[in-house]
Design a protein around this nucleic acid. Structure first.
Length: 928
RNA sequence: GCCCAGGUGGUGGAAUUGGUAGACACGUUGGACUUAAAAUCCAAUGGCCAGCAAUGGCCGUGCGGGUUCAAGUCCCGCCCUGGGUACCA
């Protein structure tokens, strides 16, 4: 009987489903292991061959851990909210849920065919009210908590109110917006609305006017990680800055913990680095500059270099800075207003692409440098960002390249205050560029003169603190996460408005379900689509929030919900969480480094603070799988004709290169008949062939429809089977690498599986295994393989594991080994990789249980012991011949043997060797 | 600009701690089986040179240096490709 995967694979998939083989129990004596994939957004295009790469790797590991006796949690679900379904709804009127569920069904069908060991009973969909109930619930908790920076964790807002009632807001060390000081008495006298407004400055989920990334084409705001180079990541539409009332999450409160936590997780170093940069910690000082003629005003600046204060010759404010209008003098008002108007018309994109052009205007105001009491002009300029630090800087042109360029352009003074280690002071007027002095000694700096930079930084901060002008400060680049979207297809906020102030719904009213609307567009008044919903209000008649939550809301805590997915009374039970704790292995793409993986850690830390989650960090080990790229095929059309010339002849003509569908190309040879039928315009295509063939050019590109290089798993499965697909995806190369897909190579893996199949069968194709004792050679082949496979799987090197299987099967085939004692362990060994064929053969060998829980083989070193070693013998580092010697031969004897070898004479040429290096079991090197 | 990956045959890749570079596959070429095809099996396959041949020699892991008995691997200096980030004070 031939290897008939078409019969085998569906049968075992059915068996697993029927027997609930992969169902994970929340109570077990076994140790737990949680293997998670980043859940997919179900797109309309379905899965291509690149999507399952990570799923296959995690599935192999999950199955391996089951063999190792672990209780494995390996769930899957869908990140179901997303823009494509909504854009489609706007165009066609089809409810996004209809589209999404249809796509989910298609995904499920494709996933099932690959034979994953997912526990589907735990499936979650972020758009399912039973799921998003808990997303809404978490939002309510965030709203009712504040961050106590003193104890370093979130606390209930009620505890903050008690503090206000006893002491006002003095002495509260909270992560909050700047708030005027008030006493307990003042707090008591405030109206509810005033109190609510103040509390809003402290809540972890808060409503505020913030500068946001507004995307007019999508009609919504976007988070920083959803914007790339001034364009929306989804759809590529331009983005502009706008001041709007929005919900935000106070993720900045957790900046330091997000940074520290990275030290405790086993993630790729590059990904940790991406997160560190995104968090962007910088240490320095905040310094207060009085404004000349405005006794009530001091400009706060943040600087990492307080040591260079004596070199600060001007100040610059962001055009959006709140005091610009207050301090600008009559004479400069018009010019300043003109400049602000101009910057408003500039998109994020313009600013980024225009870095070289220096712009700015003088306000007419002067600040007082608090260190030397000198009056310095205050400018406004685009290069100072409103969103970072205080939106105001002290400019030190001598030692900052941007300040230097600005000073040169507007002819502002430059004073050198740091001299390089091997340098003399010089006239900054002659400089080409600033000296960005990370080390050196101070000059022109009063009490700091002669100090090194590091000491001067310490001393200057101390000086500022003593004088009460400033203090040491840590600043983060990380911004609070804008959490509202002006879209339909997302979680509704569990929020209503009373007297214009937001209040959260009662937990018992959750989930607040997404209402129906007549169309998915904003209203004529520019309100979000939810404003169209009928009766969008509480039972008391208070209007409900019309914003919805962003894409990352549902994905921030889904890994916790899998632990206890059908719990209706809580997010997940304490018991389930204490058993599963955290994700042991998380596999997904590195594009989530600054989005999902930061938000999820924040979410998890908060749930930890409120004692719901027992571990602060959700993902212990993380692997980024590489992308599978497409291998595009090209044909060469002779300009102005319908004639195509073969690849190697194309230079003789003037040609235009165009994509040909990879399905029409085999081994770079074009099926010209199929090509003619591909598109209407090609019916009469003519071809100039080489050696009777049309050869295509090729290139590695992104896999996409427009490049006609998409390969989907279904086609491959119907032709070769899921086991071949699984192994081939692993065989392609290291999991983390980006690598091109070449369907050609799949044959090799298919041959391998057929060879494996034949090992268990006689010439007639019937199962035939002997109970005979294996030979030492057979034992050695098996145990070499066991050792290699276990080492490889432990370091997630699946591609080399596949090679090891191939070597093992090749060698056993050569020996015509059909011994049960060899072939049974081999089957267990390979079953995580090729589960269907393994189950089939396991069953054929007379077992009526699944192979899934058989203990994984362990290697026995005694089978691997060698009596001789074949030494490569080098002379002066060059390999000359090989010599077989007993393993335990003493070095002196080896030396003699080597020099006595007939081949050695030629290389010693009668001379006495200077030295002979012998590395036991490795190499011999003779130095002449 | 800065940060992070990476550069090995015609192709994907292997070499885990400095110790036989090119495992395992694909592709290619030749052969066996077959009426034929598919399937399967066997052999060759980094480059150059010498030889009828077995064989032998030289070169070879992006480039240039260095350390070492020995370097794809370590050190110094460069080049190129891919990704991230971008006035972050």
């Amino acid at each position: 009987m031939d290897y008939n995967f078409r019969d085998i694979e569906p049968r075992w998939q059915e068996y697993w489903e029927k027997n609930q083989t992969f169902r994970a129990k929340n109570h077990s004596d076994k140790p737990k292991y949680y293997v998670l994939d980043m859940f997919p957004y179900p797109s309309g295009a379905g899965l291509h061959v690149g999507h399952p790469l990570g799923y296959i790797a995690s599935d192999i590991y999950a199955r391996y851990m089951r063999h190792r006796g672990f209780n494995v949690l390996h769930p899957m679900g869908y990140d179901a909210y997303g823009l494509p379904a909504e854009q489609y709804a706007i165009q066609t009127g089809t409810h996004p849920q209809v589209t999404t569920y249809k796509n989910i069904d298609r995904y499920r069908e494709q996933l099932d065919k690959i034979g994953f060991s997912f526990d589907w009973s735990r499936e979650v969909r972020t758009c399912d009210p039973q799921y998003y109930k808990w997303t809404q619930w978490t939002f309510i908790q965030l709203f009712h908590h504040w961050y106590d920076a003193g104890s370093g964790k979130a606390k209930p807002i009620t505890s903050l109110i008690r503090l206000f009632e006893t002491n006002g807001n003095a002495g509260i060390n909270a992560a909050c917006d700047t708030t005027e000081p008030f006493t307990a008495g003042e707090w008591e006298k405030m109206h509810e609305k005033q109190q609510q407004e103040i509390l809003m400055h402290y809540r972890l989920a808060y409503l505020s006017d913030s500068w946001v990334n507004w995307c007019p084409a999508l009609g919504t705001v976007l988070a920083n990680d959803e914007v790339k180079d001034g364009f929306s990541e989804r759809g590529g539409h331009p983005v502009e800055r706008k001041l709007m009332k929005q919900w935000s999450l106070r993720i900045t409160a957790y900046a330091q913990r997000l940074l520290d936590g990275l030290e405790t997780v086993n993630w790729p170093e590059s990904l940790k680095e991406v997160q560190r940069n995104w968090i962007g910690k910088s240490e320095g000082a905040s310094v207060a500059f009085p404004v000349d003629g405005h006794p009530d005003k001091t400009l706060e600046v943040f600087t990492t270099r307080p040591d260079t204060l004596f070199g600060s010759t001007f100040m610059v404010l962001a055009p959006e800075h709140e005091w610009v209008k207050d301090i600008t003098t009559e004479k400069h008002l018009q010019e300043v207003e003109k400049y602000i108007e101009w910057t408003k018309t500039r998109s994020e994109r313009d600013r980024i692409s225009d870095i070289k052009n220096i712009s700015g205007v003088f306000t007419g105001a002067y600040g007082i440098n608090p260190m030397n009491n000198k009056r310095i002009p205050v400018w406004i300029a685009e290069y100072v960002l409103a969103g970072y630090g205080t939106g105001a800087i002290m400019a030190v042109p001598a030692h900052d390249s941007r300040d230097f360029a600005f000073a040169k352009h507007f002819n502002l003074p430059v004073i050198q205050v740091v001299v390089g280690p091997n340098d003399e002071p010089s006239d900054p007027g002659t400089w080409e560029d600033s000296y960005d002095a990370k080390e050196g000694r101070m000059i022109n700096s009063g009490f700091m003169n002669g100090m090194g930079v590091k000491k001067a930084i310490r001393e200057s901060i101390q000086w500022l603190e003593e004088k009460g002008i400033g203090q040491g400060k840590v600043n983060f680049r990380l911004r609070d996460a804008i959490f509202s979207r002006q879209r339909y297809w997302g979680e509704p906020f569990p929020v209503y408005y009373k007297n214009g102030m937001p209040y959260t719904l009662d937990e018992k009213d959750l989930p607040l379900e997404l209402p129906e609307v007549d169309t998915y567009l904003p209203t004529e008044a520019g309100e979000p689509p939810l404003a169209r919903a009928k009766n969008w209000e509480t039972s008391d008649g208070y209007p409900l929030e019309t914003f919805t939550m962003p894409g990352f809301a549902g994905s921030s805590g889904y890994y916790y919900r899998y632990m206890d997915p059908r719990n209706d009374a809580s997010y997940f039970s304490k018991e389930a969480n204490e058993y599963w704790r955290d994700v042991d292995l998380y596999i997904g793409g590195d594009e989530h480094g600054t989005g999902h993986l930061i938000y999820a850690r924040f979410w998890s830390m908060f749930l930890h603070d409120i004692k719901l989650a027992c571990e602060p960090e959700p993902f212990k080990k993380l692997i980024n799988q590489g992308k599978i790229q497409g291998r595009s095929s090209f044909v060469y059309r002779i300009k102005g004709t319908n004639t195509f010339v073969s690849f190697n002849l194309r230079k003789n003509y003037e040609t235009i290169r165009q994509h040909a569908d990879v399905a029409l190309v085999h081994n770079d040879e074009l099926d010209t008949e199929a090509f003619r039928n591909w598109q209407p315009g090609l019916k009469n295509a003519a071809f100039i062939l080489e050696d009777g063939k049309y050869i295509c050019g090729w290139e590695v590109e992104k896999m996409s429809k427009s490049k006609h290089n998409v390969v989907n798993p279904d086609e491959l499965i119907s032709q070769y089977g899921a086991d071949t697909l699984r192994i081939y995806e692993m065989f392609l190369g290291p999991l983390e690498y980006h690598k091109p897909w070449d369907t050609q190579g799949v044959e090799g893996v298919f041959r391998f599986l057929k060879k494996l199949w034949r090992l268990y069968r006689n010439q007639q194709g019937n199962i035939q295994c002997s109970r005979e004792e294996p030979t030492p050679a057979e034992w050695k082949i098996l145990h070499t393989c066991i050792k290699k496979i276990r080492e490889d799987i432990e370091r997630f090197s699946f591609n080399t594991a596949v090679s090891a299987f191939m070597i093992c099967v090749n060698e056993l085939s050569e020996l015509k080994c059909n011994k049960k004692k060899i072939l049974e362990p081999l089957l267990i060994l390979i079953s995580p990789y090729a589960p269907h064929i393994s189950e089939e053969l396991w069953n054929a060998l007379g077992h009526d249980n699944t192979i899934e829980f058989e203990p994984y083989p362990e290697h026995n070193a005694t089978y691997l012991v060698e009596s001789t070693v074949t030494y490569p013998v080098s002379f002066n580092g060059k390999l000359r011949f090989k010599l077989e010697l007993p393993v335990d031969m003493p070095k002196e004897d080896i030396e003699k043997k080597v020099l006595a070898a007939p081949e050695a004479q030629k290389w010693t040429a009668g001379k006495t060797p200077e030295k002979i290096i012998i590395v036991p079991k490795k190499i011999i090197n003779v130095v002449i």
